[in-house]
Design a protein around this nucleic acid. Structure first.
Lengths: 196, 196
DNA sequence: GATTACATGTACCACGTGGTACATGCTAAT
DNA sequence: ATTAGCATGTACCACGTGGTACATGTAATC
């Protein structure tokens, strides 16, 4: 019974190392050999613990979902923050170098989604919900949120390819500088803090 | 000398069938076996004609570039068309069912680009130039064009995954109904939502 | 101490991959 | 007719893939 718990803990920790490897690689397509090697265990054991490649991916995706849900909770920003500040901060966080792996991994899952994978589609939908919920807290205008979200995604794509975060930042900022924000909050000119 | 031309023509036509297959599959990752089978020739001959997988991809990409350059020439729209009309028409064309293959293929190349492939990056850059040139003809406002482009890409991504072209159409339309174009026209007083 | 259940390593397999060797055709210039 | 050069088919290869068989360890339970 003691061993039981220890084994289970061991497996969870193994899963986390798998996810970490996926993030490091920016892809979920790694071969079991690569994955095993990078995780420091034999392919044999990977299959032994998870019972096949599909399960590893499934579990890793679920774990990733949890992590992202925690990271992009609306509580990350103090209430009353201006929408522009929120979006800009999100952009900073997204284009931070150390976030690149996650970004690539998420895009890899998006690819699976548009190639038909049901699981990946669910992942995408979940991410959408997450972001909408977050943004709606600070910008309670659904079409506008929809627009920001799509612009954000396009900007991420361009950023990933070119490596230049500036165009995205500009476009996102432009979207807010052009028209009055909701409620006419007077604090439109505050400096954006990139909370770490 | 007669044979020479015939051979060359045959090879070009073969290349076109390869590109067609890539488009049909929405990916450039097909194995040589699949490709050969779908094109109606033996793998043996594919390599014989093109000299290896890389060359096939390279040539197919170049051919695709040509095709797209022809399709998205500024002459496709009569001068003086409103920017909104142009963008909406482009959206229709992009989300037409028969365009899905090309869309997927282009996204596949984008993926290669963000995974580091120099050639795919060049392809992406070329497409960007193409669209900027086209849009600038009808919307001579560079930041705005940049913004539209990113929004468009994000919308395409969402469309590919969900299959629903409406959110993209809405956001794109919204972007034009909201404000005047360059220079910051003073008539930007839209409906304002109060936050909860 | 015997049994039981899991842990782990070593070979191994079938299959798909890009690519090659070799042999045989076929057509055209000599 | 002979030669040269391309076209094409059939085997074949080395390698990476996910996964399995089997054997051996190792530790808890009776």
């Amino acid at each position: 019974m003691l061993m039981q718990r220890k084994r289970k803990a061991g497996r969870e920790e193994l899963l986390e190392r798998c996810l970490a490897t996926f993030v490091r690689a920016g892809a979920i397509d790694l071969s079991l050999d690569q994955l095993a090697n990078s995780v420091g265990i034999s392919k044999r054991m990977l299959i032994h613990y998870f019972g096949g490649r599909e399960n590893i991916e499934e579990r890793a995706m679920t774990l990733l979902e949890q992590r992202l849900r925690a990271q992009f909770a609306p509580e990350s920003f103090p209430p009353g923050t201006s929408p522009e500040a929120v979006v800009t901060a999100l952009w900073e966080r997204t284009t931070a170098p150390q976030a690149r792996g996650v970004l690539l991994l998420v895009m890899d899952l998006s690819r699976r989604a548009w190639n038909g994978s049901a699981r990946a589609k669910a992942f995408y939908a979940e991410q959408q919900r997450l972001w909408v919920r977050l943004l709606m807290k600070f910008l309670p205008d659904q079409p506008k949120v929809e627009e920001v979200l799509q612009l954000f995604q396009g900007a991420v794509l361009a950023y990933l390819i070119t490596g230049d975060p500036e165009p995205g930042r500009r476009s996102l900022a432009r979207m807010f500088s052009k028209q009055g924000t909701a409620g006419g909050s007077p604090t439109s000119r505050q400096r954006v803090r990139t909370r770490k």
